[in-house]
């Protein structure tokens, strides 16, 4: 009896400590995060012009999305294309660069800073530069011409605009590299030493030790990468305006235009919730696949 009592008490104490540690976030979540989310869920069933009280519409917004608005599906396709095109490549390249940059050898600090630069610089100048690089007479096409390859029109071509934006996103690997660099520090050094004593080569060490030890952080990067890629916006808004021929109209751009330019928050919320309902299971699948992959022995 006493034993059970004791365990119960311990559990109670554990719960209290857990809540106390997480208290600030629970408040934040309830007031500033979940309330607005619930509100937007409600709005998705209404007409809300951003001024007058929302009017209940039932499923009308969703019905319109599925039956009356083919441009939504185009935007949805563009978004998936961009997500799958950029996330894995970006994480993969970051991982390789991070492993290379992760040693205290001379000059590495400078390299680490250089690769982080695109993340530091303000958005508008960086995009402006990319517009110039993607110019048909710009640096990229001149470089291709050097090898006799005729370069495309990039952002002005419906076929090449998305690949161009994906290329541009790779420029932002610095943000992921820094996470990997920090995570590489968490790997106990004796694991490496033991492996070296066993005569494992560096490729072996990478797959047997580095990769599994990094798996929580790799998963983090894939999941947050998915989230941010599904919400790609600024590039399209600033650089292409969604064109040419809607080839860079992403869902988030549509949501923004609806909510802010057309004052149709209800329909915008319906689109956002549709994205949520697709993205969550999709991410869970990706997460599971990756976890299985990374922890394989």
């Amino acid at each position: 009896m006493a034993e059970r009592q004791h365990r119960k008490l311990l559990k109670h104490k554990q719960n209290t400590i857990g809540y106390l540690f997480a208290f600030s976030w629970i408040v934040n979540l309830l007031v500033f995060v979940l309330f607005p989310i619930a509100f937007s869920a409600y709005l998705s069933f209404t007409r809300y012009d951003g001024v007058n009280p929302p009017k209940w519409l039932g499923l009308t917004n969703y019905k319109i999305m599925f039956t009356l608005d083919p441009s939504f599906w185009k935007a949805f396709g563009n978004t998936l294309y961009y997500m799958f095109g950029s996330v894995f490549l970006k994480v993969f390249i970051s991982l390789i660069l991070a492993v290379i940059l992760n040693n205290a050898r001379k000059g590495m600090g400078v390299f680490r800073t250089i690769f982080f630069l695109p993340v530091v610089l303000p958005v508008v100048p960086v995009m402006f530069l990319w517009m110039m690089l993607f110019n048909p007479n710009g640096l990229i096409n001149r470089f291709l011409a050097f090898f006799g390859i005729p370069g495309p029109l990039w952002l002005n071509s419906p076929a090449w605009s998305k690949p161009a934006l994906i290329m541009m996103s790779l420029w932002g690997v610095g943000g992921i590299i820094v996470i990997f660099l920090a995570a590489l520090q968490d790997i106990p050094r004796n694991l490496y030493e033991a492996a070296q004593l066993d005569g494992a080569n560096s490729v072996h060490i990478f797959f047997r030790i580095t990769l599994p030890m990094l798996s929580p952080v790799i998963l983090f990067c894939v999941v947050t990468g998915f989230i941010s890629a599904s919400q790609v916006f600024a590039e399209a808004y600033i650089m292409t305006g969604g064109g040419p021929l809607e080839s860079t109209t992403f869902v988030n751009l549509k949501i923004y235009l609806l909510a802010f330019k057309q004052g149709d928050m209800g329909y915008a919320s319906a689109m956002a919730w549709f994205m949520f309902l697709i993205m969550v299971p999709l991410t869970i699948v990706v997460f599971r696949v990756f976890r299985k992959w990374l922890t394989i022995d």
Partner: peptide
């Protein structure tokens, strides 16, 4: 996962 634009006004 909720696109942030729809949360701005709420």
């Amino acid at each position: 996962f909720i696109p942030g634009h729809v949360l701005v006004i709420p």
